[in-house]
């Protein structure tokens, strides 16, 4: 199903392809503002608007603008300089949060719980992650904890087959917490290294669903007080400022340890990730850039910042 053309390209070029439109949007915007022009108040205002429209959020946009004002106000400034400063600023925010998913060997199984709003791509991400871990020679087991959505279990089973890893399941409408309990037992007796647990999508303002998630976590802790070793919130790159709310509430109620951003192959900039990094400082592990099993990549601050700002190809080595 995957386009063979796609498979040949490096991941960075794919991310860049994905971001190209948005990038050209932003950079042509920057060109428009700064071509042969002094950096005056009007120009700064336009730049701030432009950053906001890249989903960066008002705070980050304001800060970048302020930085430029201090450095270059009333000077003639080239579009390249603006882009450079922008990339630098974004990288500075993202750098501390770019942390790959470290799966140590001290816990067996190492338990990863995937959470998030409906339709962000949890199940697909689990499939990709399982494949990646399998490739690294780790033994993996999946738990189909989305017992709510029709055919979510079947969907995970197909990913399990593709990645060549076993899937623990129950029936649709079954008890997710009960299944989780069973999955931890099974992973233990099978001696697998990593257990990844899928959960049903839930909006963060739905209290009863968030309670249910808290229960799943309690059940896991009953089996292993140190687990889940990772609780990952999956964010959709097309989401706007509500992503901040998602990180905040899932952070409070589900102790999330890190983020994965999906669907970066569209024109969505994922700019809200910059705002999230600034506000919460949670690690960003990986990004999803397509539908095939290979399309999951480590999150790199420099590459991401450059892709958004539309600066050079310096770090295109993968």
């Amino acid at each position: 199903m995957a386009d063979p053309e796609d498979a040949k390209k490096g991941w960075f070029s794919r991310l860049r392809d994905g971001l190209r439109r948005s990038k050209s949007n932003l950079s042509s915007g920057i060109n428009e503002i700064f071509a042969k022009r002094r950096l005056d108040e009007a120009a700064l205002q336009e730049l701030e608007d432009l950053l906001i429209s890249s989903d960066l959020g008002v705070a980050t946009a304001g800060r970048v603008t302020e930085r430029l004002r201090r450095a270059k106000f009333e000077k003639n400034i080239s579009p390249d300089e603006v882009r450079g400063a922008l990339a630098e600023e974004i990288e500075k925010v993202l750098e501390p949060v770019a942390q790959p998913l470290e799966i140590g060997t001290e816990h067996r199984p190492h338990i990863i719980l995937m959470v998030g709003v409906n339709g962000t791509g949890k199940t697909t991400t689990i499939g990709k992650l399982a494949h990646q871990l399998k490739e690294q020679g780790r033994s993996v087991m999946l738990a189909a904890g989305d017992t709510f959505r029709a055919a979510a279990i079947e969907q995970l089973e197909i990913w399990g087959e593709r990645a060549g890893v076993p899937v623990v399941r129950t029936k649709t409408g079954g008890d997710a917490a009960g299944l989780t309990f069973e999955a931890v037992d099974k992973a233990r007796s099978a001696g697998v290294e990593v257990l990844i647990i899928d959960t049903a999508g839930r909006l963060q303002n739905r209290q009863e669903l968030m309670d249910e998630l808290a229960k799943i976590i309690r059940v896991i802790r009953k089996k292993d007080a140190s687990a889940p070793h990772h609780i990952i919130l999956v964010l959709d790159a097309t989401t706007g400022q509500n992503a901040l709310r998602q990180v905040e509430v899932f952070g409070e109620l589900a102790d999330i340890t890190g983020l994965i951003m999906t669907k970066l192959d569209g024109t969505a900039r994922g700019g809200v990730l910059v705002a999230c990094a600034e506000k919460f400082g949670l690690p960003v592990h990986t990004i999803g850039v397509g539908e095939s099993i290979e399309d999951l990549h480590a999150f790199e601050a420099r590459a991401f910042a450059e892709a958004i700002a539309g600066t050079g190809n310096k770090s295109e080595a993968s």
Binding site: S22, S54, D55, G119, T239, N242, A243, R269, V272
Partner: peptide
């Protein structure tokens, strides 16, 4: 379309 969509909504 997702009502939580950000600025990209226009492009979509």
């Amino acid at each position: 379309a997702d009502s939580l969509t950000g600025q990209d909504a226009v492009n979509v």
